[in-house]
Amino acid sequence: MKNPYLPLPMKLVKNFTETEDKLIHTFTLQYLSEEDEKSFSYMPGQFAEVCVFGKGEAPFGIASSPTEPGFLKFSVAKVGVVSTALHLMEEGTIVGVRGPLGNYYPVEEFKGKNVVIIGGGFAFTTLRSLATYMLHPDRRGDYGDITVIYGARNPGLLLYKEELAAWEKSPDINLITTIDRAVDGWTGRVGFIPAVTEEVAPSSDNAYAIICGPPVMIKFTMPVLEKLGFPPERIIMSLENRMKCGIGMCGRCNVGGKYVCKDGPVFTRAQLNELPNEY
């Protein structure tokens, strides 16, 4: 019987301060052996319980893509015990990773479809994984147009600047970045995600929309997507309920009868419409 509580020890090789306010760090973790790497096969949208030995564990979306071998990436906001301990951690330290956990974005269903990715703030983590996955040269041909609308309060709070710069130039992806208020030197758009989405007006024909971000952003973008004609079955969201076990046993992450950890975190709007609003 595989013990789902045992973490895989991994080495923290990079502790990178991702945002200007220093509240988000991106951690690159390296497998200790090839076997370990083989044992951890994941898909975009899955998460893992990352543990700081002596402090505890917490769930974080996997920001790296399975197409990037050798390491895992997590972008973590400093909010409490585990996240703070991670932020303070020196490179070279051993941490634990338990997973991959949960379901993933339905990339099989996306085949032959246009994909619109909408992200706000630091909830862009698994969206980075998804975009990177679909943009991989072996896979790019499987999908139609890929549009990414990504916003943050100001430019300094956008994650993954390197990737954004590359996507900006790439013909394979249509990247729209936006910030809340104009600042000098900013060449992207200015405005909140719902308004920008309405401006960009991605077509819902043969398309899926994937949306992650703070609750207010979701709340106001949803009507825009509906107006654009995205049916609830083709609007995809990822939930972030509080979790502990990640395997459907500890009882805390349920939304109705569904456990976000085991049955999610990825749900379609249609599925969520059937569930109580406890998220």
């Binding site: 030995f53 505890g56 502990k244 805390r252």
Partner: peptide, 11 residues
């Protein structure tokens, strides 16, 4: 059956 998972450790 609900439970919590915590660390009990020195360093």
């Amino acid at each position: 059956h609900c439970f919590d998972i915590v660390d009990d450790a020195v360093d």
